[in-house]
Design a protein around this nucleic acid. Structure first.
Lengths: 255, 255
DNA sequence: TTGAGATGTTATAAAATGTTATGTTTGCGG
DNA sequence: CCGCAAACATAACATTTTATAACATCTCAA
């Protein structure tokens, strides 16, 4: 069976993550390639910071990798999400305090904030936190709380309680669905409660949501577009929804 | 049997969603088209953000990886740390509520708890949280707070505040150093404050610390061995320290 | 029929791999 | 401590595999 170089690299990383030791020649046999190829693989992985080489072998790198299954959704509509995030960025000014909610679109915004000077970001999302942890200009505060199974974010009484300690300038929230009546839905009840709380603690709230989620519903409504300051979405939104939402008095930004 | 390009695209996406990787030539055979066609398919899918190409083939749909830098050397004294963790494990019973502090030794304990039935674990450590997030029998609660730069854990007023909400059966703490007078040190002032708070919230506290850290000091003392219920360490501890610590009234467990 | 999109073919470029020669480290015996 | 052999690592080059570009052919629906 033939595999690609990239697969081989991943395989090696997995072995290390499991703390399995190996020699170069073992790997060469295992993958049925020459030792030279393994050397090149290891050099590449080292340059990327995934492993640490020593003479005669490999050490697991001194960092932990955390994997959260993001339900494979990050890639979907990525271009739109990035455009939406870019638009949201223009609302932010140095020195402000933000809440960045869970979601793939808000995560794109987090990437854009990496080089922003002097911000405080509060988030229930471990994903957002991991993106911002090395951003020098950004103080990152993670809400406490229970870790939702299978999703990297924090909810529950603790999270809600911690939110009470803060007041911020702007909140950016995602949405799992927006109904045609303008109601905003979460896929999880506890997350919906957190989202409600977040709006209470922010002077203004903006919803970042790509058009594919508009016109559908999900488990728990956390409020309505009436309750927020604007919706930022992409140009695939149908005219019908534009009209409806404007009737609700919602400011629409279409990128 | 003939299928349309769009069907082929969908088929490819489905296969990848199932965590299966492919080489270009495999796909060419599978769909009975030329490799050139597969190349064109993959390019199109990649542009739409649906797949991730690599030289030679395609990778399964991406899982997100979050990395938190782990400054401390997990590998150092690993054997001892594991032995210490194993000893700590015997103190724990099903149904209990624990606090697991930050540190490489407590992290080893977290690994051992993965299959423990019915526990509640409160932790300021993102590393511990990530280890336990998929443990079915363990409810994991992360303290909130600021993310320390270069170390994946949570400190500050928020963390301390959240701790006030809880009371637990046992706390397991690490130590960056233990002085010859029995004082327990942290490398970080804010972490020291959290550690003090943790002891207040636990009916009993055990220090897990390998012998290499005994007899040294660090920046901030968070208390003394007098204040805790036991110290679990390895057999490399010198007789001198054993005597000293026993004079303090500290229970020593040497593994 | 015709023209746009899809596919195949061939030539060329780029990436990956293997081979051999040449350095480097490690550990051992003096 | 030194020198030396064995194991390990790199460099340079040749070969093979894979990717792209350009052009020819085919298909199907208007």
């Amino acid at each position: 069976m033939k595999i690609t170089p990239a697969q081989r690299h991943n395989h090696i990383k997995e072995l290390l993550a499991k703390d399995i030791a190996f020699t170069v020649s073992e790997l060469a046999v295992k993958f049925n390639v020459s030792e030279m190829t393994i050397h090149r693989d290891l050099n590449k992985l080292e340059k990327q910071g995934h492993i640490q080489r020593v003479h005669g072998g490999v050490l697991p790198t001194e960092r932990m990798e955390f994997e959260f299954d993001f339900a494979n959704k990050r890639a979907t509509n990525r271009k739109f999400k990035q455009a939406i995030a870019k638009s949201a960025l223009t609302l932010i000014e140095p020195g402000q305090r933000l809440i960045l909610d869970t979601g793939t679109t808000t995560l794109e915004l987090a990437y854009l904030l990496k080089n922003f000077p002097n911000l405080t970001v509060i988030t229930p999302s471990l994903a957002v936190a991991s993106v911002l942890q090395f951003a020098d200009g950004v103080e990152t505060i993670l809400l406490g709380g229970s870790i939702r199974h299978g999703s990297p974010d924090l909810t529950g009484a603790v999270a809600e309680h911690v939110l009470d300690m803060f007041a911020v300038d702007i909140a950016f929230q995602g949405a799992d669905a927006i109904g045609d009546d303008g109601r905003i839905y979460n896929i999880d009840v506890r997350m919906a409660r957190v989202d409600q709380k977040i709006r209470q603690r922010a002077a203004q709230t903006h919803i970042l949501c790509d058009s594919s989620k508009i016109g559908s519903t999900s488990l728990a409504a956390n409020g309505s577009l009436r309750d927020v300051d604007s919706l930022i979405t992409d140009s695939n939104i149908s005219q019908e929804y534009i009209d409806r939402f404007e009737k609700l008095g919602t400011k629409l930004t279409i990128v």
